[in-house]
Design a protein around this nucleic acid. Sequence first.
DNA 1: GAAGAAATGTGAGCAGCGCTCTTGATTTTC
DNA 2: GAAAATCAAGAGCGCTGCTCACATTTCTTC
Lengths: 252, 252
Amino acid sequence: MDTSRRGDEASETPAADLGKRARHRIAVEADILRVARRHLASEGAASLSLRAVARDLGMVSSGIYRYVESRDELLTRLIVDSYTSLAEAVRTAHDAVPPDDLGGRWSALGHALRTWALEHPHDFALLYGSPVPDYEAPAERTTEVGTAVVALLIALVEDARVAGRVPDPADAGIDASRASAAVGPMLDDAMFAGTDLDPVMLAQGITAWTLLLGAVTSEVFSQLGPVPDSAALFEVLLAASSRLIVISSPAR
Amino acid sequence: MDTSRRGDEASETPAADLGKRARHRIAVEADILRVARRHLASEGAASLSLRAVARDLGMVSSGIYRYVESRDELLTRLIVDSYTSLAEAVRTAHDAVPPDDLGGRWSALGHALRTWALEHPHDFALLYGSPVPDYEAPAERTTEVGTAVVALLIALVEDARVAGRVPDPADAGIDASRASAAVGPMLDDAMFAGTDLDPVMLAQGITAWTLLLGAVTSEVFSQLGPVPDSAALFEVLLAASSRLIVISSPAR
DNA sequence: GAAGAAATGTGAGCAGCGCTCTTGATTTTC
DNA sequence: GAAAATCAAGAGCGCTGCTCACATTTCTTC
């Protein structure tokens, strides 16, 4: 049905509207990812089963291999998907804050990260927990999308520098020469092209990020045992991390 | 061999010397744990298989269930084992530092944690990574031994308070009333019986611990991608965490 | 439109897994 | 020595990832 198109059959398939085979394929691939995400959310990555996904889709178990190379490849797709979802959530929250409200931007970033992690614990575990079963993430496909949220952090640090609201590194126990040796070479990376960061500020940013991610990890995996008011504890940790990269009033 | 003991056969088994059955059992249980630890170290928790352990021990696959209730129970034993190993490593390093060298104690603690984690990445993942396959750690058996290293942190914070070398919480962005609300109730816990901590200091200790654990997690799971000099970066992060709980000279 | 090529669905099958149960042998207890 | 507990061994169930041969359907090319 619905063959009402300028009948330029054969030859090119200009990716505009496709044959029923191609259409079916992208639909099935989307279905697989959708069902897999549902299974991931309810059961976790470790018990994700290709057979179960196929069963849910009403196809025979071997059929799914026409669309997915292997279980690991499905996991990779889920990782990319989760990174995208996380980056979008964080970016949306971040962009809703006025650019000159540096502290507010970091706070929004942190809260968005925490909220997303608590809402999608298994996705979070996939991204920031222990690497899955003898599965090494293929860097080409994950690092690029995985750096989206870190890019926000970098932009924030850069803006803090421009605004002269960078905290004194000595207050954070950061030694300039040490920091240079540790992260200096990282500044040559493509990610930092065009920025004007110095090693010390990058070190401060990494420290803040490490503390923030540690706080979220700790809560999602409940590493501290039962915490009476975990939201309040997060506020404390977030405030501490904030102090590492931006101070409330211009210094010096 | 070596039956040279007062031969009070039969009747009681006073746990001193046992029948051949009991002796065999504890030997086999130790073997199982040993082989399982080897598998864990080389392959990770997710691909740990009871059948493979049994095979390595030359026993038939079903035989291992005489000694281990289930796969989850084996994992629990490994967790307890790993906690013990970690606690011992950290404690040893910590106790080698003069008690009044507060910064040195924290540094030793941090370095020992990092070294242990890098040497036993899969064990570390078991303790501080994402929870294993639909497996919820039985709190009774793990929390007790899991708090050993945190106990060191608490003692350190306590000593810093006594020595009057506690940093100003405001420098770390910690608000007193917020901190009280967040962690105050935790002080009623049995772990803090006998200590004289206030909520703010506890919050500072937790912040430092979160940063330290985040730094180690980040490195072991390589969450930051390739880092040129990860050891130097750890020094920076460790120094930052140290500033959160102890300052170099007595204040006020 | 017919014919060949490519993509897709189906079912059987292999090896591995956790775990249970039965059967027969060994050790401990009485 | 008899009864009870312990253990080794094997068969078996249902699940997993993955492969292969085969039939069917769609796409491409003449």
